[in-house]
Amino acid sequence: MQSVLVILEWICLLGGSFFLLVGGIGILRFPDLFTRFHATSVSDTMGAGLILTGLMIETLVQQHGFTPLVKLLMIAVFLMITSPSATHALAKAAIHGGVKPRLADRAKAQDDENGADR
C-alpha cells in the first residue's frame, strides 16, 4: 500500500513538473500576449494541480495528519478560483490598453508587414 502511494506521488510530481515546464516553454514560444495566456493556463491548472496532488499524497505517506491535507486542498481550490479571474482581468485590461490579439487569418498578412502588434 505504502509503495503504491509513493509511486503515485512520483507520477503526480513528475507529471506536474512536466506541465509546469511546458507552460514555461509556451510563455516563451508563443507569438503574442493572448496566446501566452493559454500557456500560463496550462501550468496554472495541470502543473499546479498535479504538484499539489503529489504533496497531498506525500502527507498521507509521511502521516503528517489531517491539517496539511486540508491546507493543500484549500490552496488548490483557491488557485482554481483566482487564476481565471486574474487572467480575465488581465485580458480585459490589455484590450482596454489597446493590445490587439493576433488572429489566424490576419497573422499571415501581418507576417509580411513584420508584425503590427507592438
Binding site: L20, L33, S43, D44, G47, L79, L90
Partner: peptide, 19 residues
Amino acid sequence: PTLYDRILAANMLGTKTVL
C-alpha cells in the same frame, strides 16, 4: 514587449512561488 506580458509573467512567478 508589452506591459501586460510583464504582469502575466509576474502573475505566473507568483503562482510558482506558492508551489
